[in-house]
């Protein structure tokens, strides 16, 4: 138990009659890169909001870094960095100024904050854009500034919600490479939500497949493939995440058509 950084047990979140997250149980170890994979509206963002203490679960319990996000949201936010989907910045401040403001909110001393901001700007590949106002940044640059913003507080865990949207292909490679190196070198646990199969496959140690609020399967890609295709004829073949993903979806849509016809 000690080794897992994120521990989710039987979490359910309902909005009225709609169940966004349905009895989710998940545990993520320290230093792991975990990919939450699923289509739009599967409950990935809701799960993330609950982990950050930004919304409360209807039932179930969670621990993140040994803390309960419902009772100690501020302590959780000191240790966990969250990059929301389509992050925004104060347009009339430059990139480093935005980072320094975040540092102030985290109580980091001014001197240290400025040094750290410049360092992180270079690290995420925005070294050339130091004096530019954040309002002039492109979407991909904003996303990279978002990663720097998350790293300002020196987090133990980072949670990224669809972080690669709007970045060009070579930018995505750099971005994902950076995430992997953060995890390997600094032991940061990464929770990564995406609906891009290839990206998840590239960086994640383990994957959870999330459909309609339920976690259908979890594990590393090889074991997921084994689980799924063990009984099929082509068991010798190499399977990618794509095959696994579509296998689940086909299963889901079949269920649905059955229930409609019944």
């Amino acid at each position: 138990m000690q080794s897992s950084t994120i521990e989710i047990t039987h979490i359910t979140r309902k909005y009225g009659d709609f169940t966004a997250v349905d009895n989710l149980t998940l545990s993520i170890g320290k230093g792991e890169v975990f990919g939450l994979l699923g289509p739009n509206g599967a409950g990935k963002s809701t799960t993330i909001l609950m982990l950050m203490g930004l919304t409360e679960p209807s039932s179930g319990s969670m621990r993140i870094c040994g803390l309960d996000p419902v009772r100690q949201p501020i302590e959780v936010k000191k240790k966990v960095g969250y990059l929301p989907e389509d992050v925004g910045f104060y347009d009339d401040l430059t990139g480093p100024e935005n980072l320094v403001y975040t540092a102030r909110l985290n109580g980091i001393p001014e001197r240290e904050a400025e040094e750290r901001a410049l360092l992180l700007m270079r690290r995420v590949g925005l070294g050339e854009e130091m004096d530019k106002k954040a309002g002039k940044y492109s979407r991909g640059m904003r996303q990279r500034l978002g990663l720097a913003d998350v790293l300002m507080k020196d987090p133990e865990v980072i949670i990224l919600d669809e972080p690669t949207l709007g970045i060009d292909p070579s930018g995505i490679r750099d971005f994902l490479g950076l995430i992997v190196s953060l995890s390997r070198e600094e032991g940061i646990t990464v929770l990564f939500s995406s609906h891009h199969l290839h990206q998840v496959q590239q960086v994640c140690d383990r994957v959870g497949i999330f459909v309609k609020g339920r976690l259908l399967a979890q594990g590393d890609i090889a074991s997921l493939a084994r689980q799924l295709f063990a009984d099929s004829d082509e068991s010798g073949q190499e399977y990618g995440l794509e095959d696994i993903y579509y296998r689940y979806f086909e299963g889901e849509s079949k269920d649905e058509s059955n229930s409609h016809s019944a």
């Binding site: 936010k77 925004g88 909110l105």
Partner: peptide, 8 residues
């Protein structure tokens, strides 16, 4: 959402 993810 970025602001609310800070420890305040």
């Amino acid at each position: 959402s970025r602001l609310l993810a800070q420890p305040i």
